[in-house]
Every structure is written in structure tokens, then in C-alpha cells.
């Protein structure tokens, strides 16, 4: 899932300073699971904003709405009947959702209420961890199912480096060395011979280096 982090109330209040009528949009997908931008977080943020404004004697009207997804225009269309009643949209979906809402309502200012951080998994209730950087050329079949791009702080394809000590990364003593994880997993899978294969230089044009990416499936287009 895409993991995001709520911005501080202070930052959001600063962005909202000139506005009195706010449409607060949550998203029912990834940001709901990582407890950053779902229906519940919409409720908490709306309450925080109302309390904060009331304390300062300022008015604010907030419409709370959580869409099924903010990355599909069919759902974004659901707010069209009343979007014009609000001065600004505050979205707490991921960066993709926030932008897409802005693309659909071009005369509306759309403000971000979260910082979108990574593609990850839920380690346990309340703990999320990064697993993928969307590099566009997956090497998991060569590295025991552990991604060297996302899990190694240097994204080394042939690691580990000299900063690996007792299975931990020099960047942070609590951070597992990605290449230690790869070697451990290869051992478990009885595939340690793969470690001897040199992974060639990566073609980063499939990643961000090739500019913004687009995917097309002609057979699905209407």
C-alpha cells in the first residue's frame, strides 16, 4: 500500500488561514489502512480544525467526505454537485489522489493534508515499513525476494557494503542491512549460489530517471 503521514496541525492551519469553507476529502484505500487519511482521520482532523479555529474565535465550515478512491475520476466526480460551495479542498489522500482531484476541479485550490512517504507493508497494528520504490525493473527473483533497491540504504545491486555490521546498517543501528536480509533469505531458500551472480548495472530509465511514467493497455481502452 501507499503509506502516508498526516501533516502537523500547525502546517495545515497555516495553509488554511485565508479560508472559511473547506471540503475535507479522505480516501478509502491505502491511506485508510495506514491510518493517515481515511474516514476516521477525516473526522479527527475536522474536529481538530474546528476546535482550533473556535479557540481563536474564527469561523470554519468543514464538509467531511471520504471517497472510495481519489485516484479514479469516477469517485472524484461524486463531489461535483457541491464542490463549488467550498473555497478550498483539503485532501488527505496520497500525493496521486491530491493531484488528481486538482486536475478534475481546475479552478479549485487543493491542499495536501498528508506527506506521502513510501510503498510498504503493515508490520503490526500501527507499524508500517517500506518495501518497494517502484523502480520499474524488478529483481526480486535474483535476490531471494528481498528488494535491494528499497531495503538497502544505498540501493546496492551487489552488496553488502562495508557499513554492514552484525546485520545492521550504518545509517541507523535499528535498521536491518538489506543485503544481510537477502543473504539470509537465499540461504533459507537454498539459493545461495545466486549470490555469486553479479547483477549488471541497472537501467534506471524505467524508474524516475526516464521522467514521469505512464502505462497503457490498448485492449482495455474504451
Amino acid at each position: 500500500m501507499i503509506v502516508a503521514n498526516r501533516k502537523s496541525l500547525e502546517e495545515i492551519l497555516n495553509m488554511l488561514k485565508p479560508y472559511k469553507k473547506v471540503l475535507l476529502l479522505g480516501c478509502n484505500e491505502c491511506v485508510t489502512v495506514c491510518a493517515a487519511g481515511g474516514e476516521r482521520e477525516v473526522g479527527v482532523l475536522a474536529s481538530e480544525l474546528k476546535l482550533s479555529r473556535a479557540k481563536d474565535g474564527q469561523e470554519i465550515e468543514i464538509k467531511e467526505q471520504t471517497l472510495e478512491r481519489q485516484c479514479d475520476h469516477e469517485y472524484i466526480d461524486q463531489v461535483r454537485p457541491f464542490v463549488g460551495d467550498y473555497e478550498v479542498i483539503l485532501s488527505i489522500a496520497c500525493g496521486a489522489g491530491i493531484q488528481y482531484v486538482g486536475e478534475k476541479y481546475r479552478t479549485k485550490i487543493v491542499l495536501p493534508g498528508v506527506n506521502t512517504t513510501f510503498l510498504g507493508v503493515t508490520l503490526e497494528q500501527g507499524v508500517w515499513s517500506e518495501r518497494c520504490q517502484g523502480c520499474g525493473e524488478c529483481v526480486l527473483h535474483m535476490t531471494g525476494g528481498v528488494c535491494p533497491i528499497a531495503r538497502c540504504a544505498k540501493s546496492l545491486l551487489n552488496g553488502p557494503c562495508g557499513g554492514s555490521s552484525n546485520g545492521k546498517c550504518e545509517v541507523d543501528k535499528d535498521l536491518d542491512c538489506g543485503w544481510q536480509l537477502i543473504i539470509d533469505r537465499l540461504k533459507e531458500l537454498n539459493q545461495l549460489d545466486r549470490y555469486e551472480e553479479i547483477i549488471p548495472v541497472k537501467d534506471w530509465t524505467t524508474s524516475r530517471d526516464g521522467g514521469p511514467r505512464k502505462r497503457l493497455r490498448e485492449d482495455l481502452r474504451l
Binding site: 496541525l9 500547525e10 479527527v44 481538530e48 476546535l51 482550533s52 479557540k55 481563536d56
Partner: peptide
């Protein structure tokens, strides 16, 4: 913490 942020 939220109440502190809000100012209450």
C-alpha cells in the same frame, strides 16, 4: 497531544 496542538 492533539489537544495540546489544538491549543485546548
Amino acid at each position: 497531544k492533539l489537544l495540546d496542538e489544538v491549543g485546548l
